[in-house]
């Protein structure tokens, strides 16, 4: 264990803990752009710099491990000036067309520009970037908004391990690209959307994000309803409709989702959803009241049970519904007097 003093507060951390992690434990917020949980430390954006006693240069907190007796300052004039300069340099190459950007309210660059009082950049905007790629069915890529934090590239390569995104060219001309400059729709992209979820600006945005602002949505933590991995995610809801999905840091998925979990949520608010019980009358399914429908079901259960015994009834529960639903269903079938209850595990 190492003893560290950060902004005058003492903390004991395990060997290997970064300054950033130690700050988190103390509840001290450090600005970051390239840093992301579950990725190897990158240390390229330099926003997270702090001052370490006895060390000449400012240190990047996301990639510097604590040592015993370390004394850290997380904010002073020197740090503020340094971070402001970072923001200013990033803004020089950023298309500040914020009125036309669906990341508004969710953009880390915007947030830090406000926080560090950077209204405009003194540097020339000389970067040439490729045109937008709106070919994906689910998201857009606008290179003019990219700050080259490489979160998307690293997520695609280190976590999703799909190898679709990489950096192209050098120095000020660098941009995020796909192999052979392909469009997303023509590439090996699997539309998992994990690059979009980690983008701190409006460079990668879901197509749906145009329809809501981040402050308009409520977030509900839940479990994906597709395959058995059990990815944890947040449903983004505006006006009682699911408008988006963000991955959460659950044990099974660690901030990843697939195309189904991330984008295939339209069924929830589909106009085709069943809204009323239906009873077949003269061969046609006809709307009915709940009382009518439930009586009809119960009466037929009683009838068949009385005439042919409980084993003339059977029920299929489902691997799609909740534990609670399955439990009550099997309780009903067994309470009727039969063990004829199964579900789709076999099929």
């Amino acid at each position: 264990m190492h003893n560290v003093i950060i902004d005058g507060q003492s903390i004991e951390v395990e060997k290997g803990t970064t300054i950033l992690k130690a700050c988190e434990q103390l509840g001290i917020e450090i600005p970051t752009l390239c840093h992301l949980e579950h990725l190897a430390p990158e240390g390229s954006c330099r926003m997270c710099v702090v001052e370490v006693e006895g060390v000449q240069n400012l240190q990047i907190s996301c990639a510097t491990p604590c040592w015993d007796g370390m004394v850290v300052t997380t904010m002073n004039d020197r740090i503020r000036t340094f971070r402001s300069m970072i923001v200013e340099l990033l803004l020089a190459h950023h298309d500040v067309d914020c009125f036309n950007c669906s990341a508004v309210g969710d953009c880390k660059l915007y947030q830090y520009a406000m926080e560090y009082g950077v209204e405009e950049s003194r540097f020339d905007h000389i970067k040439k970037v490729p045109v937008k790629d709106e070919s994906s069915d689910f998201f857009n890529y606008d290179p003019s908004k990219c700050i080259l934090c490489r979160r998307c590239v690293r997520t695609c390569n280190e976590l999703q391990s799909n190898g679709t995104l990489s950096l192209k060219k050098r120095g000020g001309d660098t941009f995020v690209s796909l192999p052979f400059d392909k469009l997303f729709k023509d590439s090996n992209c699997v539309s998992c959307g994990n690059c979009v979820s980690v983008c701190p600006t409006g460079a990668l945005t879901t197509k749906a994000s145009k329809t809501y602002r981040s402050w308009e949505v409520t977030r509900t933590r839940t479990t994906c309803s597709y395959c058995g991995v059990g990815c944890q995610m947040d449903l983004l809801v505006k006006n009682d409709k699911v408008v988006g999905v963000e991955p959460a840091d659950g044990a099974p998925n660690k901030n990843l989702l697939c195309v189904k979990g991330k984008f295939a949520y339209n069924f929830i608010n589909s106009p085709d959803r069943l809204t009323t019980p239906l009873i077949r009358k003269d061969g046609v399914l006809t709307p009915a009241s709940w009382d009518e429908a439930l009586d009809f079901v119960a009466d037929n259960i009683k009838k068949v049970k009385d005439e042919s015994g409980p084993d003339a009834l059977a029920g299929f529960a489902s691997g799609r519904v909740s534990n609670e639903d399955n439990y009550v269903f099997m309780k009903m079938m067994r309470s009727i007097g039969t063990n004829n209850v199964d579900h789709c595990a076999r099929v």
Binding site: S308, A312, A314, G315, F316, A317, S318, V321
Partner: peptide, 8 residues
């Protein structure tokens, strides 16, 4: 004679 299918 009677089958109840929930969610399949």
């Amino acid at each position: 004679r009677f089958l109840y299918i929930m969610g399949e």
